[in-house]
Amino acid sequence: MCLGIPMKVVKIDGDEGVVEAGGLRKRANLSLTKGLRIGDYVLLHAGFAIEKLKDKEARKTLQVLRDMHI
């Protein structure tokens, strides 16, 4: 029901910022996420960063699947 795509924060200017993916840059509103830093990945929905991506969790998910023995 809601498209959200992971994009990297490349500029922060108060509540506004710029996010990037594959060379595509777009202005984004960052007011719904706290403590963002340049280089963080956020989930972008309707022009807003609605959450920060947790890299540790992302890697854990993949590792579990890789380690799965069938």
């Binding site: 007011s31 719904l32 706290k34 890299d55 998910t61």
Partner: peptide
């Protein structure tokens, strides 16, 4: 929760 890389138990309180 499968989607742990963005979804926490308590969601986004600011939103």
């Amino acid at each position: 929760i499968q989607y742990t890389r963005v979804t926490g138990k308590s969601g986004n309180p600011i939103a």
